[in-house]
């Protein structure tokens, strides 16, 4: 056994949630090959709140999709809680997402025919140890809007329902792709507050993709991607409150 793997094993048994090794992703579009990821090595500790920064096309969404089990890498390896998830089948990836991952998207993606509570219940019904939908909604400050349909909620409220839905199954990993991208600063802050609460109270490891450099200040670590590679990794000192962030 090599020294590196011994080291990795020691680490994982302590606190490593996710680890990627030399992750690459190449899309073939017509005659052109697009190298979306060019060798990403990233280790995520349990409970961390990480902000991924980068311009459009830097590869951050691709990375998030691979980590979240929506896509598979061209080469490299993804390990989640010691398990190699790199080449899982579609149904195994579904099980992985179902058990471990919560997603939050820029455009909320709530089910329009279900109320806020029902949107959360949708996920809790297929989870083994969920938070009751009502509690999840309370956690994001929406207890009183529980019986409203998405069309009756503001954008920020809808995104908070999405947060509640993502965390109600107690995911190990919460992946947020531009969660405040469609929101103004005031409602954006409310959503970030919700994410922070969830991260602290449930200990869910959280990865947030954003263009908004200001959000970095609420994280433990900031990773900057460019052209499919990590170009900067910065451990943050004190995590700031979302309300203190400069937008």
């Amino acid at each position: 056994m090599s020294q590196a793997s011994v080291l990795a094993e020691a680490k994982s048994s302590a606190e490593i949630l996710l680890d990627t090794q030399d992750l690459t992703k190449v899309y073939q579009t017509g005659e052109v090959e697009v190298h979306a990821l060019r060798g990403i090595n990233l280790t995520v500790q349990i409970g961390e709140l990480i902000v991924l920064l980068g311009a459009s096309g830097s590869g951050k969404s691709t990375l998030l999709n691979i980590i979240g089990g929506l896509d598979t890498p061209t080469s490299g390896k993804v390990t989640f809680l010691d398990e190699d998830i790199t080449n899982l089948s579609a149904s195994a990836l579904t099980r992985y997402r179902r058990a471990h991952v919560g997603f939050i998207f820029q455009f909320y993606n709530l089910v329009p025919s279900l109320t806020a509570r029902e949107n959360v219940a949708l996920v809790t019904e297929i989870s083994s140890n969920p938070i009751p939908p009502e509690d999840a909604l309370s956690m994001v400050g929406l207890a009183d809007r529980m019986h409203h349909f998405p069309a009756q909620l503001s954008g920020g409220e809808q995104q908070r329902v999405a947060v509640a839905r993502a965390i109600a199954k107690r995911p190990n990993l919460l992946l947020c792709d531009e969660p405040t991208g469609a929101l103004d600063s005031k409602t954006g802050v409310q959503v970030l507050e919700a994410l922070k609460t969830v991260n602290e109270e449930l200990g869910a490891t959280t990865l947030i993709i954003t263009h908004n450099v200001g959000i970095a200040d609420m994280s433990d670590r900031v990773i900057r991607l460019s052209d499919g590679m990590i170009i900067e990794e910065k451990q943050m000192g004190r995590r700031r409150q979302p309300s203190e962030l400069s937008w």
Binding site: R97, R98, A99, N109, L110, L122, I126
Partner: peptide, 16 residues
């Protein structure tokens, strides 16, 4: 399509 895709992302199986 969007609604159903989001269910898939949430971990619903193809059958569900």
């Amino acid at each position: 399509g969007r609604e159903l895709a989001s269910l898939r992302v949430l971990g619903f199986t193809h059958g569900e």
